[in-house]
Design a protein around this nucleic acid. Structure first.
Length: 372
DNA sequence: TACACGAAGGCACCACCTCC
DNA sequence: GGAGGTGGTGCCTTCGTGTA
């Protein structure tokens, strides 16, 4: 059955009526669902459970390959259970659930599947299946199937698309860095920065959130000596998500002689250490999240000197996922990142819509479609 | 101050490619 | 054709910021 769900239905009219879907999924209400704590795993398990349950019934007839075309490049934004045009989401904790729709504009008439017959499946044909799980009871409390039109009418429009750039550092490159003598891969600053940087260390006289000053930017060479080399072998202590980046930022700031109060650490602008035009990242999986800004595209970061994402220096700490120990460092201007590593092409975007948790709680024990 | 929206952050899954 | 590796996707949670 694997892969079967990826094939679109023969036509729009073949899709199972959502009320019928709700009936079919009713058997999952009250069923045990143990959260692994790994969100991607849990999301995937929920989807598999939905697939397995729907697989007990006839799926919509599949479309022969020659009769349809997947419109978005590489199928980005196509609902995962394509045959039923369903995306699944797990709803667990929190006061409100932040629904994120990736790589398509929900409730829009944007084409996803185009049929030879002339008919099509659009973004607003996708059905959203929410699996509400109560973590403390380890049980599925409800299944709620919604359409994006319903979501917008009931809770308001989806937010504007927000973009996320990512960079991939392959395990090969990683290994190469680990095996190198210094375990630091560094590149020179951009030409534009050459007249702004200094190779001599003088303690900073401005807070790290201030814009950089002429000739007070430490050169990459200096950053290498003062920071990179000293970071190798250090352990990053972190607890919940997000704290790891901050732990590294704190280490870097200490090594450079900046004050590290909580407020400054929480200053979440780009680049992290603005006074040094330095962005700090931690990486143990192959993916580095660059966030909204990416040096793949040149964008002005500091107007005064016309400094761009190309000039921003990236310090990427490669850590051992088990121990948290920094085993390698990449220190490069944005301009050079693309030379050594690969950008995820076609940046991804998401549209978000918060749904209050009490909405889901209202329907405990039910499996329903677009309730009033 | 509270709330909503936008963004950051983390990383597991999975499709696809390569090699045997 | 199957195992193993690699490249990408996008799911989920939490946080920061703007606005009323």
């Amino acid at each position: 059955m694997k892969g079967e769900y990826k094939i679109p239905p023969k036509s729009v009219s073949n899709l199972t009526n959502p009320k019928v879907l709700a009936d079919r999924l009713k058997e999952l209400v009250g069923v045990k669902f143990i959260l692994s704590g790994k969100t991607r795993t849990d999301g995937s398990n929920a989807r598999k459970l939905i697939e397995k349950t729907l697989g007990k019934y006839d799926l919509p007839e599949k479309c022969p390959k020659c009769e349809y075309e997947v419109v978005p490049p590489r199928g980005k934004g196509i609902p995962k259970i394509t045959r039923e045009f369903i995306d699944t989401y797990i709803v667990t904790t929190g006061k409100s659930y932040n629904l994120q729709v990736w790589n398509r504009i929900p409730a829009s008439k944007t084409l996803l599947i185009k049929y030879e017959s002339g008919k099509s499946l659009y973004c607003n044909d996708v059905r959203f299946v929410f699996v509400r799980i109560i973590p403390s009871k380890k049980v599925i409390a409800s299944i709620i199937i919604l359409t994006d039109d319903y979501i917008e009418t009931k809770f308001g429009k989806f937010g504007k698309p927000t973009f996320k750039h990512q960079l991939l550092i392959s395990s090969k490159v990683r290994e190469k860095i680990y095996k190198s003598e210094t375990r630091v891969l560094s590149y020179d600053d951009t030409k534009k920065l050459s007249y702004l940087i200094t190779h001599k260390y003088k303690p900073p006289n401005l807070p790290m959130v201030q814009e950089p000053e002429f000739e007070k930017l430490y050169s990459i060479e200096l950053l290498n000596e003062m920071v990179a080399k000293k970071l190798i072998g250090q352990k990053l202590y972190f607890g919940a998500t997000k704290n790891r980046g901050q732990a590294l930022e704190r280490l870097v700031l200490n090594l450079l002689g900046y004050e590290t109060n909580k407020k400054s650490l929480l200053y979440g602008a780009f680049p992290d250490i603005r006074n040094q035009l330095l962005e700090v990242k931690v990486q143990d999986s192959p993916t580095v999240d660059l966030g909204k800004f990416s040096p793949e595209v040149e964008e002005i970061v500091i107007e005064e000197n016309n400094l761009t994402t190309f000039d921003v220096r990236y310090l990427i700490a490669l850590t051992n996922e088990k121990t948290g120990i920094i085993e390698g460092i990449i220190l490069a201007p944005g301009e050079k990142l693309g030379d050594a590593f690969s950008y995820v092409s076609d940046k991804s975007y998401k549209c978000q819509r918060a749904i209050p948790m009490n909405y889901f709680e209202k329907y405990a024990g039910l499996s329903i479609f677009n309730p009033d």
